[in-house]
Every structure is written in structure tokens, then in C-alpha cells.
Write a protein that binds this DNA or RNA. Structure first.
Length: 241
DNA sequence: AACCGCCGCAACCGCATTTTT
DNA sequence: GAAAAATGCGGTTGCGGCGGT
């Protein structure tokens, strides 16, 4: 289906929002909710498209937005979730109250990725703490904690509607990458088949969280340990780490 | 003080998915 | 069931602020 951008109508404003526009949007949402984003701008007297209003509300004006820098715990959680979910920022946001998908995405690209790269370089340039003879995947302290999941290869991710996705696996349910590549499988298909119900995912995530063993609060050690724990990330797409 | 380059963030764009007609 | 409309999501970009020279 071909459809033009929703904001291409003449007269619709783009760019940064003014305080007046913010106030109009806030007032309207508080009074009427946001059941219909398409109709909202007109009703609220805004010269914006619905998409722009929705984005502004979700990423900036929502009352439950948490401001300020991400804590180490939050960053650790993001790394962890990225390992579990890939680039599914909105799914990560659902696990981080007060944080938006856009914010998490920005933090990943501007802070966390760089830190991981730094510590990967540090690790590659000198002997590290893990015994060379011991494969990472068999190390009990490795990031996987023995959970039955894997990351689909970058190539597979591209096939899956550009969504990097790490389905939860059972031993009977290993996906062969070549099969994924050879057939047209939608994200929904994969989700229905492999992703546990929300409640299960929550439980699963919390169980894994309990097993986390990063204890050092020293910045350098923190990132070094995180990197070691996130060994699997080296298999992610080049631009994701 | 002025210039320049880098960085971080807000916002846009295009596509996928879901819902409605 | 098909088409259209609406919504949601992730990738990307542009601009403002800040630090270095």
C-alpha cells in the first residue's frame, strides 16, 4: 500500500515544539485523552500532524516521564535487555518505568555502545580475566546464565522485518538461520511462536535479573564486568556494538 | 572573543503492523 | 477478505550546546 507522509499537508508545522504548543497538547490530553491522534491536533488547535503530537506526548510531555541521567542499574538493565530483545526499544521501555523508547535508543547509541566498544578494545589489547581455555558460552558467569535463548544473526534480523529479535528458545525449538533466511517469516509469526506471554517474559526477566552478579560499583570495573558478561554482543551486527 | 568540531537529544521519516470500514 | 486508515516502531538526521584551540 502506498501512502504519503501524514505531515505533508501544507501549513502543518515541523521542528521543535514551543511552550505554547506543549501547553495546548497537555491541556487537551488531560481533558479529552488521546483516543484519536489523527483528530487531536485539529481539536486542540495545533498546526501539527497527529504523529508529531503523539511523539511529543510520549517522549516528552507524559507526566510519568523520568528525567535525568540513567543510573548504572538502568544502563545495566538496558544492556541486559538488548541482549534479550535486540533493538526492540519499545519493549525495553516497557521494562524501564519512566523511560521512553527514544530515550533508551539514544542512550544506547550515545553512551552504552561506546563504553562497550572501549572495554572491548581494552579487553582485546590485554589479557582478560576469563581463562582462554574456557569457552565463554560454557562459563557459568557468562551473560547467558544457561538460559535457553539465542540471538538471531544479523542477517536473519534483517530478514525479520528489520527487527533484531532474540526469540526465547527451547531445546526443541532451535531455529536454523538458513530456514529463516529462505522463507518469508514475519515478526508476528516469530513472536507468536517463540515469545512467551508478557507475564512469562516478566518472570523470566526477573529470574535472570536475580542471577546478575555484577557487584563492583567502580565505574571501570563495572563496565569491564558488564562487557565480559555481555560476551554474546560480539555476535551482534557491527553497528550495534 | 571567535571559531570549529564533536556530542547528545528531540524530532522527522518511512515502513510494518493493527484496526476499522 | 480486501482496502483504507490509524497507530506504532526503529533508523536517521539536524540543530543547539559545549569544550577545546
Amino acid at each position: 500500500m502506498v501512502r504519503g507522509p501524514c505531515c505533508d499537508k501544507m501549513g502543518l508545522k515541523k521542528g521543535p515544539w514551543t511552550p505554547e504548543e506543549d501547553q495546548l497538547l497537555i491541556s487537551h490530553v488531560q481533558q479529552n485523552g488521546h483516543a484519536n491522534w489523527r483528530a487531536l491536533p485539529k481539536q486542540a488547535g495545533l498546526l501539527r500532524c497527529g504523529k508529531s503530537c503523539r511523539l511529543r506526548w510520549i517522549n516528552y510531555l507524559r507526566p510519568d516521564i523520568k528525567r535525568g541521567n540513567f543510573s548504572k542499574e538502568e544502563e545495566q538493565t538496558i544492556i541486559h535487555l538488548h541482549e534479550l530483545l535486540g533493538n526492540r526499544w519499545s519493549a525495553m521501555a516497557a521494562k524501564l518505568p519512566g523511560r521512553t523508547d527514544n530515550e533508551i535508543k539514544n542512550v544506547w547509541h550515545t553512551h552504552i555502545k561506546k563504553k562497550l566498544i572501549t572495554y572491548q578494545s581494552a579487553r582485546d589489547s590485554k589479557p582478560h580475566k576469563i581463562k582462554d581455555s574456557e569457552p565463554q558460552s560454557k562459563n557459568p558467569d557468562s551473560f547467558n546464565h544457561g538460559f535457553k535463548y539465542m540471538s538471531i544473526s544479523p542477517q536473519c534480523s534483517t530478514e525479520l522485518s528489520s527487527v533484531t529479535y532474540s526469540p526465547v528458545m527451547t531445546t526443541q525449538d532451535i531455529v536454523e538461520p538458513e530456514k529463516l533466511n529462505s522463507s518469508k517469516i514475519t515478526f508476528s509469526d516469530i513472536r507468536k511462536r517463540y515469545l512467551p506471554a508478557d507475564q512469562d517474559l516478566k518472570t523470566w526477566f526477573e529470574m535472570d535479573k536475580e542471577l546478575k552478579c555484577v557487584e563492583s560499583d567502580d565505574g571501570k570495573d563495572f563496565w569491564y564486568n558488564l562487557f565480559l558478561k555481555a560476551q554474546g554482543l560480539k555476535d551482534l551486527p557491527g553497528d550495534a556494538i
